[in-house]
Design a protein around this nucleic acid. Structure first.
Lengths: 216, 216
DNA sequence: TAATGATTTAAACAAATGATTAAAAAAAAT
DNA sequence: ATTTTTTTTAATCATTTGTTTAAATCATTA
């Protein structure tokens, strides 16, 4: 890839690199997350990013490679967030829940189609990287959190409950409203501004809800 | 469609009508719900239902029409369920929550890919029939339920809360675990049997959780 | 300025895919 | 038994779509 020299040069010269490469990726990210892999056509990506069809392949070799890169980036930030937080030992379970709600609700307000993308990726992952890998970071940090829950149960501070319920409920309460956003807007007559306000409200509410679910 | 006479005859003769038409629809339903419209190929449907490619078009005119029919059926049962229940005036809000959890968890255990299908349909619906239609059944019955919530708030029996939260939480708690089923199974080392047990547990738990979220 | 390398384009190719056709086989009706 | 209708098939068509090629333009450097 000879062009990298040039790219590197630009980077070093600190030019704002809103390059063609970036434009393609941005357009592709939007389309892929909105419509999935198969439904997104290469010509669509080209049109949306205002470039020629062949350029996409010049930069990314193929549609599949482009998709992989984007998905990898999307997932990386998502995974990192959870992993970093859940793995910490200086925070108790409630503090983690609180931070998780805050972090991801902000994240999802900013990137509105991430939720659907993440969930459908998880859903359709059979042998996928995201779910595999026994000894990866996220598995380890997950265990730290689960043990904190188990401890609370052992200390009779909360009701006995399968940790899978806690995690399902927590992630579900955070992510699900974004997935039925269109429905809320039409059905419940909520406009964009109100929707964001409701989501901001949830940053506070979710920890409280989880708490009242867990405690006796 | 001349074959309808024949079909009708069979129906009247009470023959079990596991016809080609049905086989195509079943195969298509599975594929469409699992992989979406674009990713499902007509030849795949044909192969899975053990019929010739041309038959699909003979019965359903086009892939799109077949998809529409299946989606319509999927949605109809989903909508009907909510509509019937929420609209009732002889049940209070809590009773409705209880029945909703029971009804749909059973439904989703039986049809495992319905949740993802429903949610992605809602998500990608802009001008869609599902969300449109001001004076339809589901809108009316939704209002009955929302008013019951508002009444409880007015009577100070529950904390003030936006009804959209209640509905998001309720539907989310029911439907979301099915969407991250694959994740739970791999991550939390839960096998199929345990997964179903957990979901059955939720039939009881969700109403309790909602209650403890709402009450002061 | 000339030359070299990077970027972009228009055009074309090949495979995949949705749909159709014409004819054969099976079933039903006469 | 014969005819008609329904069902099924193999082959083919036409379009879409991912990818490649070869050439043109632009930028950088010697």
């Amino acid at each position: 890839m000879q062009f990298q020299n040039n790219k590197l040069a630009r980077k070093l010269n600190n030019e704002k690199d809103y390059s063609t490469e970036q434009k393609i990726k941005e357009a592709a990210r939007t389309l892929f997350t909105q419509k999935g892999f198969a439904e997104t056509k290469t010509r669509e990506i080209a049109e949306k990013s205002g470039i020629n069809l062949a350029l996409m392949n010049y930069y990314f070799r193929s549609k599949q490679k482009l998709y992989d890169i984007i998905m990898e980036e999307n997932m990386a930030s998502f995974k990192q967030g959870i992993s970093d937080l859940f793995g910490r030992t200086d925070l108790d379970a409630y503090q983690k829940i609180e931070r998780l709600a805050n972090y991801y609700i902000d994240e999802f307000i900013a990137h509105r189609d991430l939720p659907m993308f993440i969930v459908s990726t998880i859903y359709s992952s059979t042998e996928m990287d995201f779910v595999n890998n026994e000894q990866d970071m996220i598995s380890k940090s997950r265990k730290v959190f689960v043990n904190q829950i188990k401890d609370l149960i052992a200390q009779k501070k909360i009701k006995p409950i399968h940790p899978a319920h806690v995690i399902s409920n927590l992630i579900g309460l955070i992510i699900f409203p974004f997935m039925i956003g269109p429905l809320l807007k039409k059905r419940a007559q909520i406009n964009e501004k109100e929707f964001v306000e409701l989501m901001m409200e949830r940053r506070q509410l979710i920890p409280v809800w989880i708490k009242s679910m867990l405690e006796k």
